[in-house]
Write a protein that binds this DNA or RNA. Structure first.
Lengths: 329, 329
DNA sequence: TTGAAAGCGCTACCAG
DNA sequence: CTGGTAGCGCTTTCAA
């Protein structure tokens, strides 16, 4: 392992000088700079980030917390975060929390022990105040908040769009699936759809569900068609749920989208790979990730910002589980 | 920020003593230990990992390199790695390399700068010697190697099984899709299938492809049915490719599995969500991850191990793109 | 423009 | 059994 001392020796200067050229700080003569650079090159030296981190009490590490990377919605977000942060030489320590507060706390603690300089959290468990007590900036991703920095998609508008498209495309007896009540984004979507549906002439049925898991969703889907067999349009709380509904409909040999239209939410990569491909409301996941990273970096420079939240637009992705519209919305 | 000094002061002992109780090293009287523990508790102190890392020249961080977390095969692997490592208090720094050697080198360098104590790599780009020069143990995941530590599934056997099941279930004109030639695991599968097919009585057609992307795969699928429209069984190089084939077959209104059987490879979560659900050869991705983590931890304790590679078994997952077998293999 | 030296928080050695 | 202290590799005063 080559250290700054080795470089100093090789260049015939002091470590202070090497440090100066490394950090481009203070004055250093052009010539000595050259010889230092040469020595660095020659020894293939790169500074020890740990030592830097210790002295400065801050690293180039960012903590990333997400519920479960195995859930297809998160990889794209994580990728967005990573790509953006990488451009600025930050690195990511990450942890899956499984929505478990203990794990979450545990990770936060070890993140701090490693001098992370900021955090991005996609979890829903810990209260906001828990985060507020941290001495480092945190941005919440895929979680709405007016008071704390956060990046999220316009779920309410998404819900509205879904309902409008559904009506526009001719469904008369619509089922609206309401996602888990502790997930704010799911509630926003629901409210948006509800608003439009209420104001419309169509009949609709609200089905409450309590998780986003596929297995659960399959059960609800069965139940749905049993209870409300003549529904001709379902607005699902996300794409996984929509997939379960699609499955069940296909099993019942319903013709899609003729007998039944389905609109999902998220546009996870899987959705376009279904047959028929799923119409859905896209959240710009990757971009949400990059935006969160950008916001965090701003916050790290200036913790007293006003513009703390960014809301991204959603859009309807027309695929094959909806009928052709008769003139668009 | 509270330091070991604060604790020492609060407990009325020296920092050395605090360090001893922290690390359970050396002798310390039961009473002083108690008062130290109390002080730690009271001050809510937790040691600075950065300082530790600097002194010991090793951290509790592990580097994880993968091509792209957005590819549905990787999250499960990553999750396995994380869960296992977490049990032993290690944390993960990770990077997506996009199979780009520059990014890969870049990450490896910064990992080292952060004193990572080991690495798990799922990439295929950098030569093995590049890794061998590292001073820390590395295990390769989803990449075969007899010389270097690695964890992978038995692709060849998987290929054999796929071919046997296909034949067993009555396909007579089989298409075998050969994945990218630079990916060893893909070649193993191919060889396994080829072996069985060659020794059998059925006709078969080999189609060479050069990537795993869905878009590319869609093109090949179209081409496949144009060239070899009466094929009644395709063994795909992975589930994404299988999905593309399934799409095209459905579009052509082939009856699955009556007219055409399809077997994929990997068993990514998406595969069971298709309609019809995809029959496939499962790689135990999560377990591969945990095994890689275990192997790495062994290596970190004892770098001179012999048992350096672990091969995991694959299994056939019967779903609905294959016909019911007439007595199993 | 440069160097000496203090010190970031911790561990481990050596004395006592 | 305990404390003093050197030093991990680096940055940053302070003097020169």
């Amino acid at each position: 392992m080559t250290t700054i001392r080795d470089v100093a020796k090789a260049a015939g200067v002091s470590v202070a000088t090497v440090s100066r050229v490394l950090n481009e700080t203070g004055y250093v003569h052009e010539d000595t700079k050259k010889s230092v650079t040469a020595a660095i090159e020659k020894l293939n030296y790169s500074p020890n980030e740990v030592a830097r981190s210790l002295y400065k009490r801050k690293s180039k590490l960012i903590g990333l917390l997400l519920p479960d990377i195995t859930n297809p919605f998160f990889p794209l977000l994580a990728r967005g975060v990573e790509d953006e942060l990488r451009l600025h030489d930050f690195r990511l320590i990450f942890g899956n929390t499984d929505e478990n507060p203990e794990k979450e706390k545990d990770y936060i603690q070890t993140f701090q022990q490693n001098n992370v300089i900021g955090m991005i959290s996609m979890t829903n468990q810990l209260s906001k105040t828990t985060y507020q007590d941290l001495s480092i900036p945190v941005v919440f991703l895929d979680r709405t908040s007016s008071s704390l920095p956060s990046v999220y998609a316009d779920g309410k508008e998404g819900g509205r769009i879904a309902a409008m498209e559904m009506i526009q495309r001719g469904s008369k007896r619509i089922t609206l699936i309401k996602g888990p009540s502790h997930i704010q984004t799911a509630q926003d979507r629901f409210q948006g759809s509800l608003e439009v549906l209420s104001a419309s002439e169509v009949d609709f049925y609200v089905m409450s569900t309590s998780s986003f898991s596929f297995e659960e969703a399959e059960k609800w889907a069965k139940e749905l068609f049993k209870k409300y067999g003549d529904t001709d349009g379902v607005i699902a709380s996300n794409d996984i749920v929509a997939t379960a509904v699609l499955h069940e409909a296909l099993r019942l040999e319903k013709s899609i989208p003729h007998d039944l239209q389905i609109i999902g939410f998220d546009d996870i990569p899987h959705s376009s790979l279904l047959f028929p491909p799923l119409s859905t409301i896209r959240q710009p996941a990757y971009e949400m990730g990059t935006e969160a990273a950008k916001l965090l970096m701003k916050l790290m420079k200036n913790n007293q910002m006003k513009e703390k939240s960014v809301q991204l637009p959603v859009m309807f992705i027309e695929r094959s589980t909806t009928r052709k519209g008769e003139g668009h919305v």
